[in-house]
Amino acid sequence: EPLWIRPDAPSRCTWQLGRPASESPHHHTAPAKSPKILPDILKKIGDTPMVRINKIGKKFGLKCELLAKCEFFNAGGSVKDRISLRMIEDAERDGTLKPGDTIIEPTSGNTGIGLALAAAVRGYRCIIVMPEKMSSEKVDVLRALGAEIVRTPTNARFDSPESHVGVAWRLKNEIPNSHILDQYRNASNPLAHYDTTADEILQQCDGKLDMLVASVGTGGTITGIARKLKEKCPGCRIIGVDPEGSILAEPEELNQTEQTTYEVEGIGYDFIPTVLDRTVVDKWFKSNDEEAFTFARMLIAQEGLLCGGSAGSTVAVAVKAAQELQEGQRCVVILPDSVRNYMTKFLSDRWMLQKGFLKEEDLTEKKPWWWHLRVQELGLSAPLTVLPTITCGHTIEILREKGFDQAPVVDEAGVILGMVTLGNMLSSLLAGKVQPSDQVGKVIYKQFKQIRLTDTLGRLSHILEMDHFALVVHEQIQYHSTGKSSQRQMVFGVVTAIDLLNFVAAQERDQK
């Protein structure tokens, strides 16, 4: 057995438009009618409502009807409940999964919650491996369901041993009777949507819809739904939504950006999952974080739909894509998950301010006199920076000697690579993860907040409520011999709460 199987392995699926269902090699399930009293909570997966979006479509000038398939009504709160249950049931049916076995899954959280929910009911041990950027709410729900959680670096490539995929496979090879159901490759993922989600949409719309818009992560949702719609409703256009920084969209030119990270969760990847059939997507749109969270908040405030950030991405694209539809036509959007997962993220004004998705003037509360002053007023001194090749031991000596707790790590040209902190280095040394002679590049981390000289002290204040420091950066445009230009970030300084307090105190003292 291989040590790991690539999540982007070539698909062996034989589905073709027009091929009889009787030739399918898979076990198919028909939607079942729910009894009045459910035998367990797993029976509350599927049969989610279709809700008309009344205000947002009109606000953006849509002539067509805009409908939302509300997947956050599933038992675990997301569309991923469907595939989690289906993968477990299919693994039980073919004898792969037996009582007492362990389920391991690399996930952005929602599939993990679905699997942990099913594992709690069915009696399996469950280990979820997820990147650090995923919300604390997801972690809390997983723990409450009895799952064990392993976190991995957000910026690790999918084929790196440190990625959530790599760590999951390492655990599988170490733990007896453990299984990775593997949402990236498992046919049960798109089949769950082909058999149930798509049929529900067709039934709820009486077979009449002209466009379907869905955000894409593993691709199982859009693949399964689109294949069924292509068979039953061939005139329906399928629109895929991919965040900026991901590479799922086609044509490839759409993916060209210097951005590699994004805040919206559960969609987009740096590889093409095996289950994603991009041939059934008629057109791709890219979405960005700001519009995703703005539209998610709009869905909550104006439509009462308590959905997550990827739902915002989907609707932001839908109001663009559906401009081509006329009166009497219908566009369906998939709202994948609930706001429950993001209470401390985009639902929080403070978080939105820190990330730059909300401006101070958007909030009406009274601010102190210094709130709208610029960061450049602080008069920061030149920063202490270190090269990635310097040793951890030497870096600790320098920081202690100069009285700093942290320093930016830059390359020879001064471009920011990340940050090192005294606390992080000492804990890594004590844990045996690094040696004093190791290069400081081994303990770089990139989960820090950046701020510009033109940003306000109010925004800085919000950042420092949650973080010990902020890195002050400025952009530099560099022209190359080819005539092309590129933008790079340079370090201007490091600012802490002490710097802000000293500035405010000094100004008030001078005024007296």
Rank of each mutant, 00 (worst) to 15 (best):
I238S: 02
V241W: 02
G245D: 02
L248P: 02
A249T: 02
P251R: 14
E252I: 02
L254P: 02
N255S: 05
Q256L: 11
T257S: 12
E258F: 11
V264K: 02
I267V: 09
G268R: 02
Y269G: 02
D270H: 07
D270G: 06
F271E: 02
T274E: 04
T274V: 04
V275K: 02
L276A: 10
D277W: 07
D277G: 07
D282F: 13
W284V: 02
K286T: 04
K286V: 04
K286S: 02
K286C: 04
S287T: 10
N288A: 11
N288V: 07
D289F: 02
F295S: 14
F295V: 13
A296H: 04
R297L: 07
M298S: 04
L299Y: 02
I300L: 04
I300S: 06
A301I: 10
A301K: 02
L306W: 02
G308K: 02
G312V: 02
S313M: 02
T314S: 14
T314G: 12
A316L: 11
V317I: 08
A321E: 04
A322Q: 06
Q323L: 13
Q323S: 07
E324K: 14
Q326Y: 15
E327Y: 02
E327S: 08
G328E: 02
C331H: 02
C331F: 02
P336I: 06
V339D: 02
R340V: 06
R340C: 02
N341H: 02
N341D: 02
N341E: 04
T344V: 02
L347G: 02
S348V: 08
R350E: 05
M352C: 06
L353C: 09
Q354G: 02
G356C: 05
F357L: 08
E361R: 13
D362A: 14
D362C: 02
V375I: 12
Q376D: 07
E377L: 11
L380S: 11
P383C: 08
P383M: 14
L384C: 07
T385V: 04
L387I: 13
T391M: 12
T391P: 14
G393D: 06
G393V: 15
H394V: 15
H394G: 02
T395S: 11
T395M: 07
I398M: 14
L399S: 02
L399M: 15
R400M: 08
K402W: 02
G403F: 08
Q406W: 02
Q406N: 08
Q406L: 07
Q406Y: 09
A407K: 02
P408R: 02
P408S: 06
V410G: 13
D411A: 13
D411R: 11
E412T: 11
E412M: 07
E412F: 10
V415I: 14
V415L: 12
I416W: 02
I416R: 07
L417N: 10
G418W: 07
G418K: 08
M419R: 09
V420H: 06
T421N: 02
L422P: 05
L426P: 02
S427V: 07
S428R: 05
S428H: 02
L429R: 15
G432R: 10
Q435W: 09
Q435S: 10
Q435D: 14
Q435L: 12
P436F: 11
G441W: 02
Y445E: 02
K446G: 07
F448W: 15
I451W: 02
I451F: 12
R452I: 05
L453H: 02
T454A: 04
D455R: 05
D455N: 08
D455V: 11
G458D: 11
L460I: 08
S461C: 14
S461Y: 05
I463V: 12
D467W: 10
D467P: 08
D467F: 14
D467L: 08
V472R: 05
V472W: 11
V472L: 14
H474P: 09
H474Y: 13
E475F: 09
Y479W: 02
Y479L: 13
Y479F: 12
H480L: 09
H480I: 10
H480T: 08
S481A: 14
S481I: 10
G483C: 13
S485L: 11
Q487E: 10
Q489R: 02
V491C: 14
F492V: 12
F492R: 12
G493F: 14
V495M: 14
T496A: 13
A497C: 08
I498V: 14
L501S: 02
F503K: 02
V504S: 08
V504T: 02
R509F: 13
D510A: 02
D510S: 10
K512L: 11
